[in-house]
Simulated assay, not measured.
Amino acid sequence: MAIQHQAGICWIKEDQWQRFLEVTEDADMLENDWHDWVRKTEEMIETFSAKGIDVVKVPVDVEELISWCHEKERTVNSSSRAEYVTKLMTGQPLQGDTTH
C-alpha cells in the first residue's frame, strides 16, 4: 500500500526520558522505561504504516518543549506535544509566534 498521509511523533532521547516523565502531565500513560516506550512506539509506527500513514520521528529536546509550553501557558501533555511536533515538522516559528 502506498503511503498517503504523514504524521509526526514526539521522539525523546534516552538521556532525556526521566526528565520528560517528570514534566509531562500524562506520565502515568507512558512507559517508565525508555526501551519499553521505544518498543511500543515502534509497534505503533508499523501499525500506522500498514494503514498508509507514514509516522515521522521528530526529535524533541525536552527543555525546549518545556520552554515552548511555558511561553504558550500550556502544560506538557499529549496535546501540546502534538502541536509542538507539528510546528517543528512544518517549519512554523516556535518563539514569539503568539498574537498580541
Rank of each mutant, 00 (worst) to 15 (best):
P59D: 15
N32M: 13
K51H: 10
S49A: 14
Q6S: 15
G52S: 08
S67I: 09
S80P: 01
E31R: 06
W34F: 09
E25T: 11
Y84N: 01
V23A: 08
Q4I: 06
L65Y: 13
P93M: 05
M44T: 05
Q6H: 09
L94I: 14
R74Q: 06
L94P: 03
K72T: 01
V55M: 12
E64Y: 04
R81T: 05
P93V: 03
H35S: 15
D33C: 08
D33S: 07
W17F: 03
G91R: 11
D28A: 14
D28C: 08
I45S: 01
Y84W: 03
E63A: 08
I45D: 01
Q92C: 04
L30I: 02
V62Q: 06
K13V: 04
V85Q: 11
A82L: 10
V55L: 10
S67T: 10
V85Y: 05
L94A: 05
E42C: 00
K72A: 09
G52Q: 06
Q6A: 13
M1G: 14
Q16G: 04
D26P: 00
K13W: 02
W11S: 12
L21A: 05
R19D: 13
Q18F: 03
L94R: 03
K87H: 07
R39M: 04
V38S: 00
E71K: 00
R74A: 04
E71M: 02
Q95G: 03
H5D: 10
F48V: 00
E83W: 03
A82V: 07
S67Y: 05
V38L: 10
